[in-house]
Lab assay of single mutants.
Amino acid sequence: MIINNLKLIREKKKISQSELAALLEVSRQTINGIEKNKYNPSLQLALKIAYYLNTPLEDIFQ
């Protein structure tokens, strides 16, 4: 099972779900679904998340 630290990292960087969704060009519901482990992001989306949060991919999804 993948450990998902997206919410923790996003909140630590003081970025809202809506702000991150806008940067990634996805819906806020997509971010919410990823954070609640209801949706697994594509590799492309996971890499974009890591880029915009300036955090290694391995720290977000373990």
Results as ranks from 00 to 15, higher is better:
Leu24Tyr: 01
Tyr51Gly: 06
Ile3Phe: 11
Glu19Thr: 12
Leu57Phe: 10
Leu47Asn: 08
Ser27Thr: 11
Tyr39Gln: 09
Tyr51Asp: 06
Gln62Ser: 12
Ile15Glu: 01
Thr30Phe: 14
Met1His: 12
Ala22Met: 12
Arg10Trp: 05
Ala50Lys: 02
Ala22Val: 10
Ile2Pro: 09
Lys13Ser: 08
Leu47Met: 13
Ala46Arg: 13
Gln62Arg: 11
Glu25Thr: 08
Ser42Asn: 08
Asn37Asp: 05
Asn5Thr: 05
Tyr39Ser: 07
Asn32Pro: 01
Tyr39Gly: 04
Asn5His: 09
Leu57Arg: 04
Pro41Ser: 03
Leu47Ile: 11
Ala22His: 10
Leu23Gly: 08
Glu25His: 15
Lys38Val: 12
Leu45Gln: 04
Gly33Met: 15
Pro56Tyr: 05
Pro41Met: 06
Lys7Pro: 03
Phe61Thr: 02
Thr30Cys: 15
Asn32Phe: 07
Ile15Gln: 04
Arg10His: 02
Asn32Trp: 11
Asn32Arg: 15
Lys13Tyr: 12
Leu45Val: 05
Tyr52Thr: 08
Ile34Trp: 09
Lys38His: 13
Pro56Gln: 07
Lys13Val: 07
Leu57Pro: 05
Lys12Cys: 11
Tyr52Leu: 13
Ile60Asn: 01
Ser18His: 10
Glu58Thr: 12
Leu43Val: 09
Tyr52Phe: 14
Asn54Tyr: 05
Asn54Ser: 11
Gln44Phe: 11
Leu57Thr: 04
Asn40Lys: 15
Lys14Cys: 11
Ala22Glu: 11
Asn40Pro: 13
Glu19Asp: 11
Ile2Glu: 07
Arg28Met: 13
Thr55Asp: 02
Asn5Lys: 07
Tyr52Gln: 06
Lys48Arg: 12
Ile2Asn: 08
Val26Thr: 06
Ala46Gln: 15
Lys7Asn: 04
Leu45Arg: 01
Ile34Cys: 02
Leu53Lys: 01
Lys38Ala: 10
Ile49Thr: 01
Ile15Ala: 02
Lys12Arg: 13
Ile3Thr: 12
Lys14Asn: 14
Ile49Arg: 00
Leu8Thr: 13
Gln44Leu: 11
Ala21Trp: 03
Gln17Lys: 07
Asn54Met: 10
Ile2Lys: 12
Lys38Pro: 04
Leu47Cys: 14
Asn37Leu: 09
Ile34Arg: 01
Gln29Ile: 10
Leu8Arg: 14
Glu25Lys: 15
Met1Val: 12
Ile15Cys: 07
Gln44Trp: 12
Ser27Arg: 08
Ile2Gly: 10
Ala50Arg: 02
Ile9Cys: 07
Leu20Arg: 01
Ser27Gln: 05
Ala22Thr: 14
Asn37Pro: 01
Leu8Met: 13
Lys38Cys: 14
Asn5Leu: 06
Ile49Lys: 00
Lys36Arg: 13
Ile2Phe: 12
Lys14Trp: 06
Ser27His: 06
Ala46Glu: 03
Tyr39Thr: 08
Asn4Thr: 04
Glu58Gly: 12
Arg28Asn: 08
Thr30Asn: 03
Ala22Pro: 00
Asn40His: 14
Leu6Ala: 02
Met1Ala: 11
Lys13Met: 13
Lys12Asp: 07
Gln17Ser: 06
Leu45Asn: 02
Ile9Ala: 07
Thr30Gly: 01
Asn5Trp: 09
Lys7Cys: 07
Ile2Arg: 12
Glu58Arg: 10
Gln44Gly: 12
Ile60Gly: 01
Ile2Thr: 12
Lys13Thr: 06
Gly33Leu: 15
Leu8Gln: 14
Ser42Gln: 05
Leu43Gln: 09
Gln29Phe: 08
Arg28Glu: 14
Leu23Asp: 05
Gln44Pro: 09
Val26Tyr: 02
Ile2Gln: 10
Asn37Cys: 13
Arg28Trp: 14
Ser27Cys: 06
Tyr39Trp: 12
Asn37Tyr: 11
Leu53Gln: 00
Lys12Pro: 01
Phe61Ala: 03
Asp59Gly: 06
Lys12Met: 14
Leu24His: 00
Glu58Val: 09
Phe61Leu: 04
Leu23His: 11
Tyr51His: 10
Ile49Met: 06
Gln62Ala: 11
Lys36Val: 09
Gly33Ala: 15
Gln62Trp: 13
Gly33His: 15
Lys14Arg: 12
Glu11Thr: 12
Arg10Gly: 02
Ile3Gln: 10
Leu45Cys: 06
Gln17Pro: 05
Leu8Cys: 14
Lys38Tyr: 14
Arg10Asp: 01
Glu11Trp: 07
Ile9Ser: 03
Ser42Asp: 09
Asn4Ile: 07
Ala46Asp: 00
Glu35Pro: 01
Ile3Glu: 08
Leu57His: 05
